[in-house]
Design a protein around this nucleic acid. Structure first.
Length: 489
RNA sequence: GGUACCGUGGCCGAGAGGUUAGGCACUGGUCUGCAAAACCACGUACAGCGGUUCGAAUCCGCUCGGUACCUCCA
C-alpha cells in the first residue's frame, strides 16, 4: 500500500495524505499572470505539480487539477498605487487587454507542452469569474470583515485578526507587523497598511472594468483563487499549491477570505515549491536576471553557453526535491543533459536484454525504493538516484553480466518505463515525435547497417567514413558486440 | 528591524544519530580494428567552535557566511 506523505506548509510538517473523498482528489495550483513570456521560474511549479498530478493518478486517484490563468487584478505595485499588470502591458503595446492575455496564455501553453507538462483538468480565468468574486466580496462584507472606501472594498485585517488568526500560514504576527511598520502615505484609503483590496474602483482611464454593487471596478488579486478553487473543487478541498513567494501575502489572504466568508478554511494541504536561483540569487522579474523558457530552448541568452532541450530542463528540475532551492548554472544543466541521455540510453537498452533462467537482480527492490522516495514528499531526486542504480544494472544485463528471468524482465521494463515516462513525465527526445524523426531514425539505421557490413569485410575506410560523416551531422555512433547504437546530439 | 530557511567532496544535489546516496567532471583499468559507449576501480564531503551522546554531517548553543518573505514576482 502506497502512502504518500506531503509537507503541509500550514502545519510545517510532513503528513500522510488522506483525500477528503477518495478516490477523488482536488488539486488547485496558482498559475501564471499572463503578461510576459514564461520563464524558468514558471517551469518549477508547473513541473512540480505536474509530477504530483501524475503520481496521484498513478496511485489510482481520480484527480481534478485546476490551474488558473490570472488575467485581471494583479497589480504592479502596492495595492493602492499599482497598475494592473495586464492593463499596463496592453497600454504599452497598444493592444486590447484580452489580446495580451491570449498571446501570453498561448505562449505559456506552448512552453508547457514542450516541457511535457500535462494540461490541467480545468484552467479557469479570473475575468471569467467576476460574478462569483463579487458574491464573495458581498459575503465578507456582510460578515463584517470588510469596509468600503470610495467604491473600493478592503479586507479588514485587524478586525479579522481579533477573531481568527491572520498569519497562520506564513507564521506572521500581525500585531508585531503593525508595530514595526512606520506609517507613511497620507491619503491612504486603507485603515491599516495590511488591509488588502477585495474590489478596486476603476479610475476613469482604467480599461478593464466591471459593474458591481459599488460601482465600476475590478477584483483584487487574492480573490480569484479563493473563488475558482472552491467553485470547481468544493469546500473544503484537498491540495493547494504554488510558489513559495506566494505564501505571503497571496495565500495568507486566501485563507483569510475563506474564513471571513465561510467561517472555515478551504484548503487541507498547502504545498509550496521553492525558487530557482541564479548565482545563489532568486530569479525574478524585478531583479532582471530571469531567463525565459524560449531562451533556454534556443540558447540565446548571455548567461547560456548552449541551448538546453525541454527535457533537459525538466530533468534538471526533477533532480532536486521541490522544496529546495535549485541553483541554475550551465555546468549543472550540462550534467543534467548527460545524465538524462544515459537514462534514456538505458531505457533503449532494455530491449536488448535476453531473459535467463534465473534472476540475479531484484526488481521488487527497484519498485520499493522508487515508491519510498516518491511517497516521501515527492523526493524525485532520490527516485532518480534509484533509477540510476538500475541504469548500471540494465547495462550489465545487456552484456549478460547479470541475469534476469523473462517475467522479471517484463516487470522491469514496465515499471522502469512507467516511472520515467508516465510519472516523471520524461520523453525520449530521440525517438518520439514526428514522422520526420522516425524517417531520420530509419535512415541512420540503414547507413549503420551498411557500415556494419563494411566492418565485417574489414573495410575500415568505408566504415570510418560513414561514422565520421554521421558525426559531422551530429549523430554519435557507438559500436556494440551485436551491432550498433546511435544518438543524435 | 521582524519571520523563516540554508551552508554537504571540483560542480549540481539527496540523506538526517551508527551502514555506498546519485548525477556530472577527473584519474587508472577492461573491452574495441580505431573511437565512443558500457563496465570495473578510485575520492574518509558534510561552514567554524563548543556541548549532549558509547557514537553527530544528522540533536543543542554560539560564531561566521548566504538566501527568501515582510511591495509585484513561480
Amino acid at each position: 500500500m502506497n502512502k504518500l506523505s506531503i509537507y503541509n506548509t500550514l502545519t510545517r510538517k510532513k503528513e500522510v495524505f488522506e483525500p477528503l473523498n477518495p478516490p477523488h482528489v482536488g488539486l488547485y495550483v496558482c498559475g501564471p499572470t499572463v503578461y510576459g513570456d514564461p520563464h524558468l521560474g514558471h517551469a518549477r511549479p508547473a513541473i512540480t505539480f505536474d509530477l504530483l498530478f501524475r503520481y496521484l493518478k498513478h496511485l489510482g486517484y481520480k484527480v481534478r487539477y485546476v490551474r488558473n490563468i490570472t488575467d485581471v487584478g494583479h497589480l504592479e505595485n502596492d495595492a493602492d498605487e499599482g497598475e494592473d499588470k495586464i492593463a499596463k502591458k496592453a497600454r504599452l503595446e497598444e493592444l486590447e487587454p484580452m489580446e495580451v492575455v491570449q498571446y501570453y496564455t498561448d505562449r505559456y501553453h506552448a512552453a508547457m507542452r514542450r516541457l511535457n507538462v500535462l494540461p490541467p483538468s480545468i484552467e479557469p480565468r479570473a475575468s471569467g469569474h467576476i460574478i462569483e468574486q463579487i458574491e464573495l466580496v458581498k459575503k465578507i462584507l456582510a460578515n463584517g470583515f470588510a469596509y468600503e472606501r470610495n467604491g473600493s472594498i478592503y479586507f479588514d485585517v485587524v478586525k479579522y485578526n481579533k477573531q481568527h488568526s491572520y498569519g497562520i500560514l506564513s507564521g506572521r504576527n500581525i500585531e508585531e507587523m503593525i508595530a514595526n511598520t512606520r506609517e507613511l502615505e497620507g491619503q491612504d484609503e486603507k485603515q491599516n497598511p495590511f488591509d488588502f483590496a477585495l474590489w478596486k474602483k476603476a479610475a476613469p482611464e482604467h480599461i478593464m472594468r466591471w459593474l458591481s454593487p459599488w460601482g465600476e471596478g475590478f477584483p483584487g488579486w487574492h480573490l480569484e483563487c479563493s473563488v475558482m478553487s472552491t467553485k470547481y473543487l468544493g469546500e473544503p478541498f484537498d491540495i493547494h499549491g504554488g510558489g513559495m513567494d506566494l505564501l505571503f501575502p497571496h495565500h495568507e489572504c486566501e485563507i483569510a477570505q475563506s474564513v471571513a466568508a465561510n467561517g472555515k478554511q478551504a484548503v487541507r494541504y498547502w504545498m509550496h515549491n521553492n525558487m530557482i536561483t541564479i548565482n545563489g540569487q532568486k530569479m525574478g522579474k524585478s531583479l532582471g536576471n530571469f531567463i525565459t523558457l524560449e531562451e533556454l530552448f534556443n540558447g540565446k541568452h548571455a548567461l547560456l553557453e548552449q541551448a538546453y532541450s525541454p527535457m533537459t530542463i525538466r530533468f534538471f528540475i526533477l533532480q532536486a526535491q521541490y522544496r529546495s532551492t535549485l541553483d541554475f548554472s550551465n555546468e549543472a544543466l550540462q550534467a543534467a543533459e548527460k545524465g538524462l541521455s544515459r537514462l534514456m540510453a538505458a531505457n533503449r537498452m532494455l530491449d536488448r536484454i535476453k531473459p535467463a533462467d534465473s534472476s540475479s537482480v531484484q526488481v521488487e527492490q527497484l519498485k520499493e525504493k522508487v515508491y519510498e522516495a516518491l511517497n516521501d514528499d515527492l523526493n524525485s531526486a532520490l527516485a532518480i538516484a534509484v533509477l540510476f542504480d538500475w541504469v548500471r544494472l540494465i547495462n550489465l544485463l545487456a552484456e549478460d553480466k547479470e541475469s534476469i528471468t523473462a517475467n522479471n524482465l517484463v516487470e522491469l521494463k514496465t515499471f522502469f518505463r512507467t516511472i520515467i515516462f508516465d510519472v516523471l513525465g520524461m520523453a525520449d527526445e530521440q525517438t518520439t515525435g514526428s514522422k520526420q524523426a522516425e524517417l531520420t531514425a530509419k535512415l541512420i539505421e540503414m547507413l549503420l547497417s551498411m557500415r556494419l557490413e563494411a566492418k565485417q569485410r574489414k573495410d575500415f575506410a568505408t566504415s570510418d567514413r560513414i561514422r565520421d560523416e554521421l558525426s559531422k551531422l551530429g549523430v554519435i555512433v557507438r559500436d556494440r558486440k551485436d551491432g550498433f547504437d546511435w544518438e543524435i546530439e
